[in-house]
Nucleic acid binder design. Structure first.
Lengths: 349, 349
DNA sequence: CTGAAAGCGCTTACAG
DNA sequence: CTGAAAGCGCTTACAG
């Protein structure tokens, strides 16, 4: 026998009130025509009994599970908390649950993760792809959160514009030589951010880009970035393409006795958890994850309601770009010629 | 009419093969007695058609959703990625999906989040409570991941032992005065960690504890911790109760020109994402999240299979403690009287 | 070894 | 305004 659900069902409420299950269902959902008095009685009784509708029964009948999948293949992504939280909030507000699927960084495992979600009957899914993955025929609507440069339709922060914000900020501080620090040359997101920075440079400014992954390939994981040397070459601003790299730059500079922000500026991206609390706090650019999640989820929900059949379609009608917001904190400061003395003064004191 | 599922169902396979749905079901699940030849044919045909069983149908019939809930009320918890990943992996291996519920830090919202999961019909849930929340009657089996000091049954890392590892490590380096840096005095986890450190001190060593939350209450968010002053008082080791606080300590010390690890040692807890990549990389203590997740999930699954009725019970039969592992990196060094010179040497060179 | 039938809980045309 | 009935897709005793 099937195991008993603990709570009451429609039938129990109906019997106990001497009405039909159809009427109970209508009263609870507010759909069919039921007299106000009866609606009142039914709802009160249902509440009293602690009635919780069976998702299984509803799902079987309607063909909708009321659940969205969230695929995050990039394991240790420090943005994960923010993304998951924003998606869960938006989905929850739209009456959906969120089933997660992490593929532990394995690239092929992304497909498996997607399949698992399909098997669980999700009505749609949000995918944050690792690098430029091609999302192939999941049999349900899909929204991709990545960057505008990704082929196909996506919702994304405007990483390019975010880069321009950084460039403008650094320009206003008087910096002339910017070292852009990225992790991964293949990443669309990082390339957009770097492109934005370069595009935002004023005449007389120049930039150079350091890709950590490549450096580590030659020198070993966790190696130093050689920023002191760069500072000596005249770079006064270190613009990382993520707060993780910014943190790495900041600590390396500090250990080498280069003062931030007195000697050089450091900036990041994403406003990750540690950015406000390190010393100096990090100037960064924040994605409006709530808006992005809202757009992704509502596009998904719209598509789900619109079509009776589930199809494997990308749901964002076109690429949506959500602006990023510059957050100025202590790690970026004004360039002054006399910093050298300042710094020595600090150290000696 | 209910919207059509896209794929074939048991009935379609049965008709197309001229057998009954019962036989198809039995063949696919391997439960009833079906001849090997028929099993073969049915499975081949099902695969060919791309048959995906309906979770809704199965759930309605069996009374099991095959889904576990994960409640993480602490919004921005940087451990979130590791926890979610470990739970998802363990659940997935046991054939379960994971539905997430984040309550955005709101304490009362935890109950709402739990209710939402119950309404979605989860078979059980894993709760990582914020502070010492009392988990009240969710109508399904519950596993709590927190710390052994939490009332009720839990699975947890052995935070106390982790603290002792740190103390032993610092003792072996010759440190005498340890500043313990915590965030939240109410946290069971942090108190256990701090208690472990204190318990592990050797004769001749002493410790003092700094609670950031309290300091910020007086001085404002993002304030400095005044570690330079502490260093002047003779503290040579700064043992943070989380890598986030360790990072805060590290950057503050560095900005004040105090060299880590030449002048003082810094240690953390949790081996968070940035710990291996900052300069100097952070000595820390790692939780075996995979084992913890495995224990929580298997306790849950056991309880689900054992009882036909769903009850609101804590499933870990007793408190399980999973050992933590010390990871020694650069941020902790040997105390020597002559460090001052060494450091200057580095800077000058 | 195989099949007919019941029923999990719900929603939705349809009839009254 | 209310109810009887069908059916979503599955699994499981039970009969043959």
């Amino acid at each position: 026998m099937a195991s008993q659900r603990p709570g009451p069902n429609l039938s129990r409420i109906a019997t106990s009130l001497g009405v039909s299950v159809a009427t109970v269902s209508n009263a609870l959902s507010g759909k069919g025509r039921v007299s106000d008095a009866l609606i009142e009685r039914i709802r009160a009784h249902a509440a009293e009994l602690g009635y919780v509708p069976s998702q299984a029964g509803r799902a079987l009948r309607t063909g909708r599970s009321g659940v969205l999948g969230l695929v995050l293949p990039d394991i240790a992504n420090p943005l994960f908390p923010k993304i998951a939280q924003a998606i869960e909030y938006a989905a929850s507000a739209a009456g959906y649950g969120v089933l997660i699927a992490d593929s532990r960084g394995d690239i092929t495992a992304q497909t498996e993760a997607i399949n698992r979600l399909v098997e669980r009957g999700v009505d749609g899914m949000v995918i944050v792809p690792r690098r430029a993955t091609r999302i192939s025929g999941a049999s349900c609507p899909v929204a991709v959160i990545d960057t505008a440069s990704t082929p196909g339709n996506t919702v994304a922060a405007d990483h390019w514009q975010g880069g321009k914000e950084i460039a403008a900020h650094l320009a206003s501080l008087g910096h002339k030589q910017i070292l852009i620090i990225g992790n991964n040359r293949e990443s669309n997101v990082q390339n957009d951010r770097a492109g934005g920075i370069r595009a935002g440079l004023q005449p007389g400014m120049r930039s150079e880009t350091l890709w950590i992954e490549r450096l580590e390939h030659e020198t070993g994981a966790g190696c130093r970035l050689g920023l002191e040397e760069k500072a000596r070459q005249g770079f006064t601003a270190f613009a990382a393409l993520s707060d993780l790299q910014a943190l790495r730059a900041l600590t390396e500079l500090q250990q080498d006795g280069i003062s931030v922000p007195a000697d050089v500026s450091v900036t990041g991206f994403d406003d990750l958890i540690w950015s406000p609390v390190v010393t100096p706090s990090l100037t960064t650019v924040r994605m409006d994850m709530d808006t992005i999640a809202e757009i992704a989820v509502s596009a998904l929900v719209e598509r789900i309601n619109e079509s009776g059949t589930r199809e494997g379609v990308l749901v964002t009608a076109h690429t949506e770009r959500v602006p990023m917001q510059l957050i100025i904190r202590q790690s970026s400061g004004l360039m002054k010629p006399a910093t050298k003395n300042l710094r020595d003064g600090e150290l000696v004191e």
